[in-house]
Computed example of a mutant assay.
Amino acid sequence: MNASIAAVSSPGRDVRIHPLPYERLLDARPLFQVDLVVIHCTELPDLATAREYGERVLYPASGTGNSGHWYVDRDGGIERWVDPARIAHHVRGFNPRSVGIELVNSGRFPHWLDSRHQAMDEPYPEEQLEALAVLLRTLCAELPALRWIAGHDDLDTDQVPASNDASVLVHRKRDPGPMFPWPRVLEAVPLQRLPLTG
């Protein structure tokens, strides 16, 4: 095991702490600022590929990249890559008030913006959903202002030209996608779906 990785316990679930190399470069914030959790899916084949993407420096001025705070693998394993007391880049316009949870799921991989490949038909395994519910309940106990939950697609509704045909528009973000069981998750946790305007 890498020396930078440690395991901590949450009620009913171990969380592997695996900080991104640039974690300390992300802006700090008080935990009482966090009132929203955003559910994502990686749209990548596995956790190792997601880690490669997460470690990429996309913002040279700050030396940081895009990542969620927690990653939940298909087998229910949980890793924390960014401390919730730091602002991760995971959803445009909502980062300062939110934490991001990424579920490993192929989504539209590898043709994210191809209009012929917009189906997101990989189901979320039972172990992954159970781990997500445990993580969410733990966060509700640890983050005093946490009240809301949303999908990435709820918050980023932009459409962009398709990669295969610029005359066709596709959604930039569709995760967690149509296979995500919102009613089940909302029933299992003390959070409300974020009201959306517009």
Results as ranks from 00 to 15, higher is better:
Asp121Tyr: 00
Val134His: 11
Arg108Ala: 05
Gly54Tyr: 14
Glu122Phe: 04
Glu102Pro: 00
His111Trp: 06
Trp70Arg: 01
Leu58Val: 11
Ser98Tyr: 02
Glu130Asp: 13
Glu79Thr: 12
Pro84Asp: 09
Arg97Asp: 07
Leu139Tyr: 13
His117Pro: 00
His117Gln: 13
Asn95Trp: 03
Arg147Pro: 00
Ser62Gly: 15
Ala133His: 11
Tyr53Lys: 13
His90Gly: 01
Ala141Gly: 12
Val72Leu: 13
Asp75Glu: 09
Ser67His: 11
Trp148Lys: 05
Ser106Arg: 14
Arg147Trp: 02
Glu52Gly: 02
Val72Cys: 06
Leu143Ser: 03
Tyr59Met: 03
Val104His: 02
Val57Phe: 02
Ser106Asn: 03
Ala61Arg: 12
Leu136Ser: 12
Glu126Asp: 14
Ala150Arg: 07
Thr138Pro: 00
Gly54Met: 14
Tyr59Gly: 00
Glu142Lys: 10
Glu122Pro: 03
Gly93Ala: 10
Gly77Val: 08
Trp112Arg: 13
Gly77Gln: 13
Asp73Thr: 04
Ile101Ala: 11
Gly63Arg: 07
Leu139Gly: 01
Thr64Ile: 12
Glu126Pro: 00
Gly63Glu: 08
Tyr71Ile: 10
Asn95Gln: 10
Ile149Met: 12
Ala141Thr: 09
Ala133Cys: 15
Leu143Arg: 04
Pro60Phe: 07
Ile101Asn: 06
Gly100Cys: 06
Pro96Tyr: 08
Arg97Glu: 15
Pro60Ile: 02
Phe109Gln: 03
Pro123Arg: 06
His89Glu: 11
Val82Glu: 05
Gly107Ala: 04
Glu122Ala: 14
Ala141Trp: 02
Leu58Lys: 13
Ser67Gln: 10
Trp81Arg: 03
Gln128Phe: 03
His90Asp: 03
His111Gly: 00
Arg92Phe: 06
Val104Thr: 09
Glu122Ser: 07
Leu139Ala: 15
Pro125Gly: 04
Ala61Leu: 13
Val72Pro: 07
Leu136Ile: 06
Glu52Asp: 09
Val99Leu: 15
His90Ala: 02
Val91Phe: 02
Leu143Val: 12
Asp121Cys: 05
Tyr71Arg: 02
Trp112Ser: 02
Met120Asn: 05
Trp148Arg: 07
Gly54Gln: 10
Ala131Gly: 10
Val104Leu: 03
Ile149Leu: 11
His89Trp: 10
Cys140Thr: 15
Asn66Met: 11
Asp114Phe: 01
Gly107Arg: 01
Glu102Ile: 09
Tyr71Trp: 15
Trp70Asp: 08
Gly68Ser: 14
Glu130Ile: 10
His89Cys: 11
Leu143Gly: 04
Tyr53Met: 08
Tyr59Arg: 13
Glu79Ala: 14
Leu135Asp: 08
Gln128Tyr: 03
Arg108Leu: 07
Glu55Ala: 07
Glu102Phe: 06
Leu132Trp: 07
Cys140Pro: 00
Arg116Leu: 11
Leu103Arg: 05
Leu136Gly: 09
Gly93Glu: 11
Pro96Ala: 11
Ser67Tyr: 01
Arg147Lys: 12
Asn95Phe: 02
Val104Glu: 01
Leu129Ala: 04
Ile101Gln: 09
